[in-house]
Nucleic acid binder design. Structure first.
Lengths: 197, 197, 197, 197
DNA sequence: AATGAATGAGAGTTCATTCAT
DNA sequence: CATGAATGAACTCTCATTCAT
């Protein structure tokens, strides 16, 4: 008990929240949000149940913050990234490589954003930075510049995203062994062919 | 009350199960499985809570049967469908149109199969008929016949599925107005360009 | 278990709510509302915890309904009662005897209304029938008719109520052995002398 | 933060306890003891949660000390006060005026003693100085001296106390505007008439 | 003395499931 | 087959209390 108290007292408060985030994220992806209990999270993280509530007001808020913060951050990154490039081709290339890098760096977080999208999307407000919106916008701008044939921007963005995300899904389910980074070239090529159609 | 009892007594037993299926499916898609209670389903269907247990042994079985029966049936349909065609091009065309028709005919069921895939996939056994498997197989056979360049069959199937399903997702979220059937031509074209890459 | 199930199934639904009311009322008075748990109530009543929630949406609602229904009913009774009499003297006499009879008939309920008055009074809206209001009104009318000297009606009502209720308090705390009904004559006499002052 | 620490360091330790008492008393009366959390008290007092435990071993002790110390002190005051007078009439007069002065000087404390009486009374031991006991005793002595008609001392004390306390209650609930001191004459008159009956 | 993050027992509440009718 | 009151395990969340600083 004294040893435990010692550990508790020594724990960096910053680390506690990160520990919760990490543990919750992993369990949410492994078992689903509803199937993960507060006890699951706290015991896996080695903290008391009450401690979680010092950092998040509820389980729902935890799930939402984990989603929205990372979702928004990723969208902002995409937005900043595509501005560094002039042609649609270069933007698409950079965007897809960013997706691939993200996946390989943190597959659990990527999976969470991918798989919980539907569940959390009810709360996504139109004014929140959103990867789909970013993609649709610069694809539309590329069309306007005549880089690719004109078509429905929404559909085009959906198809490009579908190509990228479904390879990710294939990897999440263990059907694909290669890293997404290793597959980036062929994903970019496929996406570009979709846009050129 | 007697009138109500009369109605209950007169209810076609077949219809009760269909009513449960329909109601549960809609609520599962609207709110998620965990967020839908037995009471939600029974009150929306106008039946007693206990009645549901005459048709399904548990809520979990209900969700699973709704998923697996339709998932399997769709896979079987795809399997039978592609056999009617000889070339990969024709198979892809027919398969994608089948997806589109399915979506337009029963968007709720389609959404359920699409969105609950992750949650239910833990229970999908490798021996169950599976749309992905069917697709991957006939794409592989098309490659073997030299109809398209050789590449990873798994990745190719994932990309094709991604193109189709993400347009569906776009429609589920109301970002696309047109019916999937109306979009079938461009989806087929995009998928084919992906395979030709 | 089968015996228990049998008892459960045989329980008159009307009786279940009455059982909850009775048990909760007793425990609330014995230990206080906050100190009484749902488990205390359900186990003392011999029902499951969930059963309580078929009848009341929350513990707070239970406490409030137990209070407000009886509080209002008693006020309505007092209101109807005093109308049967013409003189203030007769009204005071009847009112006090009604208090005494109520106490002797259901000391627990009386104690609840008396002791939880402060806690629940935050929720008592001015438009709810209220014993104090009734009393103040007919005392005021008696003054207007010249039956007693003019004075502040509110203070007069408070004093009369104080005389009655503090004898009840004395009895609740076991300091007085006689029944309130037996004491009614002297309470009436005291109250009347207060009004005549 | 350093400024705050400075302020904390400068705080007179005597003042901290008084601050806790004052804040707790106010919140206990406003919301009830059970409904007031340690955090409510500490944040309203501008101290840390742990600080409270430097002064009281528990919340229960805090509530009890706040009650018993003041309850006892008031009883002792009443006891000393009535000894200064010879006749029951004078004792009653002085006692009631003391109640009124107390109320007007510290209505919150008065309310606490009045309203939490029931909750805390379980812990009031018979040997503790007690206003009711004091009152009952000197009323009994007055009867023995033939100042008022013989009757049940307990009931007589309850009635007198009822007259006083219910006017206080009326004021606590905002139904009476005048100060209790301003009402003292009429309260004394009413109480005396009750005893003369 | 004062702090406040951490604790964890225990509270209120939910809801899938049962079963006598 | 249908009913729905009753069940109780299990959940989320609260909050008095501790203790290293």
């Amino acid at each position: 008990m004294s040893e435990h108290s010692l550990m508790v007292a020594m724990r960096d408060p910053k680390y506690t929240k990160e520990l919760i985030d990490e543990t919750a994220l992993r369990l949410f992806v492994e078992k689903g949000i509803a199937e993960t209990t507060i006890r699951d999270i706290s015991s896996a993280a080695g903290i008391a149940e009450g401690t979680l509530y010092r950092h998040y007001v509820s389980k729902e808020h935890l799930a939402w913050e984990l989603f929205s913060k990372n979702f928004t951050a990723f969208a902002v990154e995409l937005d900043q990234l595509h501005r560094k490039h002039d042609t649609l081709k270069a933007k698409i290339d950079a965007t897809i490589r960013h997706y691939c890098t993200f996946f390989d760096k943190d597959p659990i977080l990527f999976s969470y954003l991918l798989l919980e999208l539907h569940g959390q999307l009810r709360k996504v407000t139109p004014d929140m930075p959103n990867p789909v919106t970013v993609l649709r916008r610069f694809i539309g701008e590329g069309m306007a510049r005549g880089e690719i044939p004109r078509k429905d921007r929404e559909i085009a963005a959906a198809m490009v995203l579908g190509v990228v995300l479904h390879v990710a899904v294939s990897k999440v389910y263990g059907r694909t062994k290669q890293s997404l980074t290793a597959l980036a070239d062929s994903i970019v090529a496929a996406a570009w062919r979709v846009l050129e159609a």
